[in-house]
Simulated scan of single mutants.
Amino acid sequence: MKPKSPHYARIRADVLAIAMHVPRGALVSFAAVGAHLDVMPRHVAYIIAMLDGPERDRLPWHRLVPVDGRVEKPAQRALLEAEGFAFDTKGYIEGFPAQLADVDRLKHGVPAQARPA
């Protein structure tokens, strides 16, 4: 996917770098990644939703989830179940948010950011 602007390209690269470092058995929320990058959670979700096939195969994109822990996409749920995550009957991850990793402590190398005022 061709980046839409230099800012989008930077944010996209940062989201993917963070996603790449979420370890098996852990999750991060779109909101936590957004807070780290000072962007809206929906922008993080959009970037993940727009990954192409090779990127989906290479990245653990499925470990980025909504802040409420509800997973609606069957492909994402299947990948999470394969890693041992369980779901209740409404699609919420059981034991959530205990499985959330602290984005700031992951070894992704992406500094916390703040938009200029």
Rank of each mutant, 00 (worst) to 15 (best):
H62C: 06
H62V: 04
V65Q: 04
V65L: 03
P66G: 08
P66Q: 05
V67P: 03
V67Y: 05
D68C: 06
G69Q: 14
R70L: 09
R70A: 01
R70E: 11
V71D: 03
V71M: 04
V71Q: 07
V71T: 12
V71Y: 01
E72H: 00
E72W: 00
E72V: 15
K73E: 12
K73Q: 13
K73W: 00
P74S: 13
P74Q: 10
Q76K: 14
Q76P: 04
Q76F: 01
R77S: 06
R77Y: 00
L79S: 09
L79C: 02
L80M: 08
L80V: 11
L80N: 06
A82T: 12
E83T: 14
E83D: 12
G84E: 09
F85G: 13
A86S: 12
F87H: 05
F87V: 12
T89Y: 00
K90S: 03
G91V: 11
Y92R: 14
Y92T: 02
Y92D: 01
Y92P: 02
I93V: 15
I93L: 11
E94T: 13
E94C: 07
E94P: 01
G95C: 11
G95R: 10
A98L: 10
Q99M: 10
Q99W: 09
A101H: 00
A101N: 00
A101D: 04
D102P: 02
D102R: 13
D102V: 15
V103G: 02
V103A: 07
V103P: 06
D104Y: 00
